[in-house]
Design a protein around this nucleic acid. Structure first.
Lengths: 208, 208
DNA sequence: GTCTATACCCGGATAGAC
DNA sequence: GTCTATCCGGGTATAGAC
């Protein structure tokens, strides 16, 4: 939809949202390094000056994308973590969903992990990591029998695992074909189950 | 050391290595997005044309850095995986070393995971992932009693975990102070032990 | 193997008209 | 809220001299 249209030219349209949409499209085609406000403007059929009515600068566009990414990803994760399965399977399902999200919304995911954006400078993103992690917390607490510190460790391990599989998937370690996504997602889920099974090693010094 | 020196100006010096060194320094200061051959040249006190005698283009510099990264990282990992501890602890130590490497050689690590470089277009890097994973293979095989497929799954899980913790460390999830590195490295090691403990869930469909 | 010089293109950002 | 026009800085890459 948002490729060659440039309807009759915008003018009073929802340029702000259109910029974000087109930025996602552009990043999908050329990667983070290929993103520029100028090219986005060109694709929308507006001049390079127009977006500056809606965004202070380039970074604010990226921040807008990052916010979208956090919203959507944490939403997906919460949905997975909240159903009626046993808690360890809710964690596994959330990890699987995490990996799928990275593949299906590659641009958004990349903004989150590889934009070079300083998240601590944008209030809405300051707790981005926290919001992602929070989605895993409830089942983790159940798994850990209410031990909050143990649950936090487990959440960190699950997030790291999901992020790790996502990274490997995106850089081609699972191959290029369509099966790669499901293979990575499934293995991530299995890894989370393994973490839960062996979780005694997560908390203690794991002697021996 | 390599900042304002520009000795008496190079001329017949080892410019190729110097470019790589300075690129690492520059990326350390400004991140991947801040890297340019022009700035590297300036810092070395040579003209922007000089590096082109040693590198076909910008990407070839990045490829050179990536190759260094793979060499150094896989060397570190092999050293950890080859000592006399029990195999599960060799895996854990390698994961810990992986995370430390990401922190101590941040620039190199970022080139590896976030340069946007198409590794499949550079022969020396085509099997970069394989060389990293290979460092984990021996202890994984022992852990898995010789089952090659199970060992491969375990290696993937360990690499993903290490990469995940490294990513979280670098984007600030473990805080900014010096303790962050050791905290992340230690938790990564623990997570690997947990994976080994619960590794039955990695291979099978993990019913129930 | 490096320098001088240059051609070329692109992105960020702003002023002022409409 | 967008356009026109423009400034400014910067990066990539090459040709030809030394």
């Amino acid at each position: 939809m948002p490729k060659s249209p440039k309807r009759e030219r915008y003018h009073h349209g929802e340029l702000k949202e259109a910029v974000l949409d087109t930025a996602i499209e552009l990043i999908g085609e050329r990667g983070m390094a290929g993103f520029s406000l100028a090219e986005v403007s060109r694709r929308l059929g507006v001049t390079v000056a127009a977006p500056y009515r809606h965004f202070a600068d380039r970074d604010e566009v990226l921040a807008g994308l990052a916010l979208r990414a956090v919203d959507e990803l944490s939403g997906v994760l919460r949905a997975q973590a909240a159903d009626s399965l046993p808690p360890r399977h809710r964690l596994a399902a959330a990890a699987r969903a995490f990996v799928r999200f990275a593949a299906e919304h590659r641009s958004l995911y990349q903004v989150l992990v590889a934009s070079g954006l300083d998240k601590s400078r944008h209030a809405e993103l300051r707790d981005a990591g926290g919001r992602i992690g929070a989605a895993f917390l409830d089942p983790a607490l159940v798994v850990c029998g209410g031990d909050a510190q143990a649950a936090q460790r487990l959440v960190t391990a699950v997030v790291a695992t999901a992020q790790g599989y996502a990274g490997m998937l995106l850089d081609g370690s699972f191959g290029q074909d369509g099966q790669a996504v499901e293979a990575a997602a499934l293995q991530a889920a299995h890894a989370v189950l393994a973490l839960v099974l062996g979780r005694d090693a997560l908390t203690g010094p794991a002697a021996g």
